[in-house]
Amino acid sequence: MSDKSEQQRLSVFKTYKLYVGGKFPRSESGRVYEVTDSKGGTWLANAPLSSRKDARDAVVAARKAVPGWSGATAYNRGQVLYRVAEMLEGRREQFAREVADAEGLSKSKAAAAVDAAVDRWVWYAGWTDKIAQVVGGANPVAGPFFNLSTPEPTGVVAVLAPQDSSLLGLVSVLAPVIATGNAAVVVAAERAPLPALSFGEVLASSDVPAGVVNILSGRTAELSAPLAAHQDVNGLDLTGAPADLAADLEAAAADTLKRVRRPSAEVWTNDPGTSRLTSWLETKTVWHPIGV
C-alpha cells in the first residue's frame, strides 16, 4: 500500500439517461452533449441531447398516464408523492454532490438546497387532498339546484424547468403539476440537467406510475418549440424558457389555447403559495336539480 495510485480506485461513471414512460431510454437521436460544472471547466458527464421525437414520445407517454393518475384518489397521489420525498431523502448525499457541481455551490449550500427540495416535495405531497377544498366548493345559486365547483387537472403539462436551480427549482415546478393529477413532460435545465435526470431515478423507485413524469435533457430551445405547438399538450410552463423565446413559445401555444405560465423571477426558497397548483387546474361546475 505504498503506491498512491494503488490506493485510488477507478470510479464507475454513470450514464445519464432520459426518463420517459417509466423507462430510461437514450435519445432516439443517439446524440449526447457534454455537461460541465457551473464554471464551465470540468466535464461531469454526457447527457442525452433529446430530439423533437423524444419530446413527442414523452407526450404520448404522458397522455397515456393521464387517466390513471388523474383518476387516482387524492389520498393515493399524496401517498405516492410522499414516497418520492422518502426516496429523495435517502439519496441526499448524491444530490448534494450533483447540485454542488451543477450550480457551483458549497457543500453546505448544496445540501441545504437538497433539504429544501425534499421539504418542498413534502409540502406539495400534502396538498393533493386539500386543494379541492380550498379552491372548490358549493355555489349558492338562486334556484332549486345543487351546484358544486371542483378543480380538475388540465391534462398534459410541458414544463421548462428553471435554468438557475437544478433540483429545488425543478421540484418546485414539477411537484405542483403532478400533485394536482396532471402528467408532466419536463425539459431539464439545459446546462445543469444531471440532478433532474437523477431525479427520474428517484421517481422510478417510488410508486409514481409510468408516464406521469417524463424528463428530457437537451437544448431548451430545440425541445420547447415542438412542445409549445403540440396539439396534445394542454399546459405550458415557461419558467425556464430562454428570454428571447418566451413570447414566441406563448404565441405557438395560443394555437391550441394552452394554459401558459409565463416566466417570472422567483426566489425558490420563498413560500410558493398555491398559484403553481391552480395554474394546472380547471374548474368544473356541476349542476343538478333538487327535487323529490
Binding site: 332549486p144 339546484f145 336539480p289 333538487i290 327535487g291 323529490v292
Partner: peptide
C-alpha cells in the same frame, strides 16, 4: 316502476 321518472324541478 318501469315508467320514466319525473324530474320535479324540470317539470315545474
Amino acid at each position: 316502476h318501469g315508467l320514466p321518472g319525473v324530474d320535479a324541478v324540470g317539470l315545474e
